[in-house]
Amino acid sequence: MRIDALDKSGLRSPLQRFLKLILRDKAGLFGVILFGFIIVVAVLAPYVAPHDPVQQNLRISRQPPAWHEDGSWEHPLGTDNLGRDMLSRIIYGSRVSLTVGFLGVVIASSIGLLLGMVAGYVGGRTDNIIMGVANLFLAIPYLLLVVVVAAVLGRSLLNVILIFGFTNAPLFVRITRGEVLRIRKSGYVESAIGLGASQARILFDHILPNLIGPLLTVATFEMSGMIFYEAGLGFLGLSVPPGIPSWGNMLAAGRQYIQFSPWIAAFPGLAIVCTSLSMNLLGDWLRDLLDPKIRRSAS
């Protein structure tokens, strides 16, 4: 019992440790807060947006932001070329970006998880075929795919999501497969086999839970990438139809006025950068949090 007493003194309590862990990575914490804020705003868009994002008012078109001498607090971030409220458009635009990012990642990771697990677990010829197809997919330039699909099926949010989902799946396949191979060789899986465990048990009780950590981390990075690319496609006029407020579309529209009304392009650009940044920070933070080695070392 005396040993226990010796153990505890000088050791931080779990709460202290958790706080220290969170506070240690200041950048990560910033990312978490920023990301949380963006999500909340996107979800509550109808309540927080001051104006209707598609309501045009040509009389006040290209009004500068509020802190400019010609601006007004009625439109804090000013208006675009058609007199629509920038702030409201950015708030609504976040819904498109987040939807694309979220659903894209869900599709990509579901496909990746399934095929990666099959490839890694079954192995042999099946593995070779799945990985062959995955590599083939990686070789297709996604931009070309988008142009073709947009030309054939028209511009729609769903198409963009599906394309992102499919083109990003190979990455998840690879990562899942690698992890499965590693976990399958690990002692605890071998020991479960030695106990006579069924395949299902090994897959769902041992392999799957240990996949979540690495995949979650990759997913956040991928999501940030998708948001970025969606904006890029919007800028090229290949994403959602022009009527829908999206950051890419706004950026494209602002391009013509960049010289005299730079805010029209600048604010959506800033939003894209902030969202991407917050997700990258979040990814780093998650990775550290889930890695016991890093979690327990340097302060």
């Binding site: 002692g187 605890y188 071998e190 030695g194 106990l195 006579g196």
Partner: peptide, 20 residues
């Protein structure tokens, strides 16, 4: 699988042989 209980193994690396 049914006969596995009769024979067991203790592993070298106790860290990796227990699911974390």
């Amino acid at each position: 699988r049914a006969e596995r209980p009769k024979m067991q193994m203790i592993f070298q690396d106790s860290y990796s042989s227990l699911n974390p």
